[in-house]
Amino acid sequence: MSELGQQLVNGLMIGCLYALIAVGYTMVYGIIELINFAFGELFMFGAFITIMMMSPEITLFGNTVGMPHLNFFLAIIIAMAVVAVMGVTIERLAYRPLRNAPRLAALISAIGVSILLQNVAQSIFGSQQVPFPDIPLFTTPAGAPRAFALGGVYITYFQVFVVVVTVVVMLLLNFYVKRTRMGRAMRASAQDKRTSALMGVNVNKVIALTFLIGSAMGALAGGLYGGVYHAAWPLMGFNPGLKAFIAAVLGGIGNIPGAFLGGLLLGVIEALGSAYLPMGSQYRDAIAFVILILILSFRPSGLLGSTVSQKA
């Protein structure tokens, strides 16, 4: 029984990280119908910048450079800010010029940005994995993780922190989109960009803001992921990026609570699947894609997506 409990905790943990990246996908898709594949790479930059800010020094382009040696919380906030600016810049340079081009053009541009960022990261940080510094609040001075056991289920303090952060962020975002003026402008733009513009909504600003928030969420997920897996590496964003995309589709793309639910579900299904299916660990990634195919076949609008047509 405690084994099942442990597997559930394992899955929820990954699920939270998927959910955070999925929010970026889902918000951007909701408005401009673009799958921004570069979120996986922004996630990776989030992890690297967090490590940079936390370290006394780091190797960049093969040279050792002094770094601010900040605490984890400050570091991850800086990473979110930097990556948010990166996200907006990418939107401005790579997507906005293609706004009225066929959708595939923007999609290909997104893949291009994604590959570009991977290679940039590889030349900046090198191809090796970079260790994530220990976080004193979550690690004993001897370097062991601070954890507690609950009926045989081991939970680390950092896992609790990740879950709390995810839930709080999701609630805040949901509130922002549902209850604020800017949120209303976002929802309006998602329904109809032209009419919103006619009503005085600055659609470009709304889209930039969406990228800003989505990228910051990606960076937050990256920083947390780095902390959970104790490392960052240039190709780390690819797989979680894909999974988050699946999570977004699973929950109903364009829907924030859906992204949260989709992320958690995907994490748990993956963990249980790889633990209890025969040879399951071998098919961990396949499980996610099977879910994607099932969802697209039977409920393309996702679990929480509206079945009403948004647009002609």
Partner: peptide, 20 residues
């Protein structure tokens, strides 16, 4: 969500596979 959405997601996946 319309079939256009569904198609878009499918096309996205195809393009991604090609890119890979």
């Amino acid at each position: 969500m319309t079939t256009i959405h569904k198609k878009l997601v499918l096309i996205s996946i195809l393009v991604l596979a090609l890119a890979l």
